[in-house]
């Protein structure tokens, strides 16, 4: 299906978005590009899941948005990480770390 983001581990999209936004404010396409590049093309993020996720995160107060001119002088919606978003990122990162370690231990046992 075209609207499924390819290769993404389930439930990690929000964490990846938060991490991406922690570097600098970005618009939706930029976030998708950045995730794809950094993952070396392993993760592809589709707007069908990215934009609803951003909308949810904005509702939850983890990001806020404003309209700015983009690099090619278009009007684009930029998402900015909030304090609560930063906290959420830390929590999720810790959780993820624990999960990865646990899975690693199980696989190596």
């Amino acid at each position: 299906m075209t609207d499924e983001s390819r290769g993404l581990v389930q439930g990690t999209l929000e964490m990846l978005v938060l991490k991406t936004l922690a570097l600098e404010p970005m618009h939706g396409y930029g976030i998708a590009q950045r995730i794809e590049q950094i993952s070396g093309g392993v993760f592809q993020v589709n707007p069908g899941s990215l934009l609803p996720a951003l909308s949810r995160m904005e509702r939850a107060g983890r990001v806020k948005s404003e309209w700015r001119a983009s690099e090619n002088n278009r009007r684009a919606r930029y998402y900015i990480l909030t304090k609560s978003g930063l906290k959420a990122l830390e929590t999720e990162r810790r959780q993820w770390g624990r999960q990865v370690k646990a899975i690693g231990r199980i696989l190596e046992a």
Partner: peptide, 14 residues
């Protein structure tokens, strides 16, 4: 309208 603009922007950038 806002959503539409954002989606269109995404599309155009791609």
């Amino acid at each position: 309208a806002a959503i539409e603009e954002e989606v269109r922007g995404f599309f155009d950038s791609a």
